[in-house]
Design a protein around this nucleic acid. Structure first.
Length: 887
DNA sequence: TCAGTCACG
DNA sequence: ACGTACGTGACTGAA
């Protein structure tokens, strides 16, 4: 049985463009519509197994419809350039897929499709027609199924005449009448004003066609009767415009559309050009052959160091060189160390020396270990932080690293998602390097290759590092980020590694006891929920919970997610008054989170030998320059609610008689804003050391300090948060649960007072549009390509990011400075106290009793003095026997 | 592997 | 008119 798939090319490209975020490859080519188109094609080929295939496009601007109605498709915003530049790519893609494409000047894709489906109908062949446009439903028949895209791009809804009958109560032909009556704003088809889908359907159910409706206006009432009579001509013309023309003079010979599969080679090449990495992987085009793809492959000799030759070879180590440390596994604190490679380039000969880890660890590895630990021997590598950790857990010291390619690449573009040697080689147009996944496989398929292949790949990673060093070093200079790199980020990597290796002690017994308590409480609540709901179900499943609440119990559902009812805390809080069970569910959720994430999750991370957890701070993830924390995440330990806050009691000093000391910046982001914006009012507030939210309330509401009540302060606080996040009236209205108008008025009042802040917000967006990026005080940079996008949502997001990133990023700069300075001070003063954690605006230490007074003074002093601003910085400090008590 | 939810600053 | 507050990571259930 043959099956023809017809794709409405323009429609699907449009849907894909607006459904997906604006992706682009490293040469700046936008690719989101191409990507969406590709995934749709792949899915169709796999699931539908078509024997025939074609894509129809609109050709030219003017069609016969414009002759009838010059306003046709008038008022439609012109296709944004980000989309139109993708059409040639889509056409090229279709060639690689070997799918025939049709376009005919003077006709729309609809008409081509109409003509072809008519031919298929006559021939009795099966057709699947894919479009984003419901007009196509008029073409449905016993042979023609119409697939309309739902949200997203790969999800479609299928329509046969039966489904159309069920959903609209109409035949496919009546879809045209529907549009004739209701019109279509996107095509500028008028229809009858005031008639929407509901009214139109009612009329058609009664009368059948536009013509019959017009003939029976007598049975309509009042205003509606007048309108229909007045716009009778429009309705007729609209119906004509909506009718797909099915007599296009074109070849309809069936075998013109035969489909016998794509050209794998061409498709692989296309995907590489577009940088569709996930697809390349999924498609399994066979082994990667860089040379076959026309990539430059440099010659390199890969030497494997052995017991026999190690003595001779280490003699070649010089005062400076590129190395690579291969440590496999996500968590560098428990990575499997594969080995160390060093790379040389002498008289145009590339050589890599791979030292398997067993050798490095043994007696024969001693000279190399000494070289690695020698601060005066300068090394360049990829990922200093990870390398230090992986080696340290094996008792090997790494010092003297003066250039980390990973850190440099991150600073040059902190939003780059593929920060790997292979990705960076491609990004900076250097000779190709296979991706680790292509060599090792991934997930369950991960295998180290045999020795020759392994040493070659690792050697090439070192060689890629060597090529990247000078390129990135120059880029850092150009971006004026050399100081940020050499004096802050790179030194910080070692400071972080030290903190993590030290770890923080956890009272595992206390944590287990907390767990028992939680399990008991959860048991009770669970029974109570089952009783109240009248049925046992999985409370952790939002799907099941939604069914119970909104179907079984019939509670009002007002918020939806992509997949069904939303059951998040906001929803549940509003439902709480309706049914007792809702409060119990909220309670259950809260405790279940504590139990699963903070009791069980944390216990899994405690090393039994030491009773400590060793988090891994990631320095190259956050787009703003913040750190993030993993395995476990110690930057989101509960504090806001007392039940959760108790978790902090299990974080204790690692030595008896010591204390936990914590210091946090007070309002660092608003102080940074005061400095950057130079707003007089805001500066004044901090210079007078006032409570900033109270001060904001006084200014915004125009009252004396004594008149500011708790609610006013709460609202002012929300406004301050909003300002830092890049304010919008909608966001503020959601947060404060007030109307958008009121929120807008708040914001206006705020800006009327804090005029410098308004100017900053306006200017930073303009700067971002002009430069394409924003910067922090220390020149950290974030590119915002979407700031000029034609899509309102994407553009607005970029604008808010432009406002927020310099603030959040400068705050991150400051605490990083404080950490590097603090580390130096502790060493210089010979203090035993140790820095353990960073939580964005807070530093946590463990301190012996005799240093308490020193540290209570020193820590806030260093933090406040980390960077001189035009307003004072200030840090509050406290200490206690646990993290909980250091509040 | 993705979506939903929720913990933090 | 459009529909989101900025930045993260971990866990669970459901495909």
């Amino acid at each position: 049985m043959d099956k023809l798939i017809i794709i409405d090319g323009n429609s699907i490209a449009n849907r894909a463009f607006y459904a997906l975020p604006l992706l682009s490859n490293s040469s700046g080519l936008h690719t989101n519509a191409v990507y969406g188109f590709t995934t749709m094609l792949l899915k169709l080929i796999e699931e539908e197994k078509p024997t025939h295939f074609l894509v129809a496009f609109d050709a030219g601007k003017i069609t016969f419809r414009h002759k009838e109605y010059t306003e046709y498709k008038g008022g439609r915003a012109k296709t944004p350039s980000e989309l139109s530049e993708q059409f040639p790519l889509i056409k090229e893609l279709l060639k690689a897929f070997k799918i025939p494409q049709f376009e005919l000047s003077g006709y729309e894709a609809d008409d081509i499709i109409g003509t072809l489906t008519k031919a298929a109908d006559a021939k009795g062949e099966k057709v699947l027609l894919v479009s984003g446009d419901k007009d196509m439903l008029q073409l449905a028949s016993d042979h023609v199924t119409v697939a309309i895209t739902r949200k997203g791009i790969t999800e479609v809804e299928l329509y046969n005449p039966a489904e159309i009958k069920e959903k609209y109560g109409l035949t496919p032909a009546q879809i045209i009448d529907l549009k004739g009556l209701m019109g279509d704003t996107s095509d500028n088809i008028p229809g009858i004003p005031g008639v929407g889908e509901k009214t139109a359907l009612k009329m058609l159910h009664e009368f059948g066609t536009v013509e019959e409706v017009l003939a029976n206006t007598a049975s309509l009432k009042g205003k509606m009767k007048e309108k229909v009579e007045e716009h009778a001509k429009d309705a007729i013309m609209s119906k004509e415009l909506a009718t797909i023309f099915r007599e296009v003079p074109m070849e309809t010979e069936w075998d013109t559309f035969r489909y016998d599969g794509y050209d794998g080679q061409a498709l692989a090449g296309m995907f590489r050009k577009l940088e569709f990495k996930s697809l390349l992987e999924k498609m399994d085009f066979g082994a990667v052959d860089l040379e076959a793809e026309g990539q430059v492959v440099e010659s390199m000799e890969a030497v494997v160091v052995t017991e026999a030759n190690v003595g001779e070879l280490v003699g070649k180590l010089s005062d400076s060189g590129v190395i690579h440390v291969e440590a496999v596994g996500e968590n560098p604190h428990q990575a499997v160390n594969v080995g160390v490679v060093w790379f040389t380039h002498d008289e145009d000969v590339n050589t890599s020396y791979y030292v398997p880890f067993q050798l490095l660890k043994g007696e024969a590895g001693e000279p190399l270990r000494a070289w690695l630990a020698d601060d005066s021997k300068k090394k360049q590598l990829f990922d200093l932080h990870r390398s230090i950790l992986a080696l340290a857990w094996q008792g090997i010291v790494l010092k003297g690293v003066d250039f980390d390619v990973l850190l440099a690449a991150y600073l040059l573009d902190p939003t780059e998602s593929n920060l790997t040697l292979s990705g960076l080689s491609a990004k900076y147009s250097l000779p190709g390097l296979k991706a680790d996944e292509d060599v090792f496989g991934k997930g369950a398929k991960f295998r180290l290759p045999e020795l020759t292949a392994l040493s070659d790949h690792l050697g090439r990673k070192a060689m890629a590092t060597a090529r990247l060093v000078p390129v990135l070093a120059e880029e850092l200079e150009k971006g004026e980020m050399h100081q940020l790199f050499y004096e802050l980020e790179q030194p910080l990597a070692s400071v972080l590694a030290e903190m993590e290796l030290r770890g923080i002690a956890v009272d595992a017994e206390g944590l287990k006891a907390l767990g028992v308590e939680l399990v008991n409480k959860l048991d009770t609540i669970m029974s109570s929920i089952y009783k109240l709901a009248g049925v046992e179900f999985n409370i952790n499943s939002p799907k099941q919970l939604g069914e119970i609440l909104f179907e079984k119990l019939g509670l009002p559902a007002w918020k939806k997610t992509k997949t069904g009812y939303s059951t998040d805390a906001e929803v549940l809080e509003r439902l709480a008054p309706y049914n007792e069970v809702v409060g119990q569910i909220l309670n259950y959720r809260q405790l279940a989170k504590l139990q699963s994430t903070y009791v069980e999750g944390l216990l899994k991370e405690v090393r039994p030998e030491t009773g400590k957890v060793h988090t891994y701070y990631r320095q190259t993830i956050a787009a703003t320059g913040r750190l993030s924390s993993q395995f476990p995440n110690l930057q989101n330990i509960p504090i806001r609610l007392e039940e959760g806050r108790k978790i902090r009691k299990v974080f204790v000093p690692s030595e008896p008689g010591w204390y936990i000391l914590a210091a946090d910046y007070s309002q660092i982001e608003l102080r940074v804003l005061a400095h950057i914006s130079q707003d007089e009012k805001l500066k004044e507030a901090f210079l007078q050391n006032m409570d900033i939210h109270t001060k904001t309330a006084m200014d915004v509401f125009g009252v004396e300090e004594s008149a500011v009540d708790a609610n006013m302060r709460r609202q002012a606080k929300a406004v301050n948060f909003g300002i830092v996040y890049g304010i919008s009236d909608y966001g503020l209205s959601q947060n404060l649960d007030i109307t958008r108008r009121d929120a807008a008025q708040f914001i206006e009042q705020y800006f009327a007072v804090f005029q410098g802040v308004r100017k900053y917000m306006d200017d930073i967006v303009k700067d971002a549009r002009r430069d394409g990026y924003v910067t922090t005080l220390l020149q950290r940079r974030r590119y915002l390509p979407e700031i000029t996008h034609s899509n309102f949502n994407l553009r607005s997001f970029a604008e808010r990011t432009a406002m927020n990133t310099p603030i959040q990023g400068t705050a991150a700069d400051i605490i990083k400075l404080a950490m590097v300075q603090m580390d130096a001070r502790l060493k210089k003063e010979g203090l035993k106290s140790r820095m353990l954690l960073q939580v964005h605006d807070e530093l946590v230490f463990e301190v012996p009793e005799e240093e308490l007074e020193t540290m209570r003074r020193l820590v806030p002093e260093v933090m406040a003095g980390a960077l001189k601003l035009d307003v004072p910085l200030s840090a509050d400090v406290d200490y206690g026997l646990t993290w909980y008590d250091a509040k």
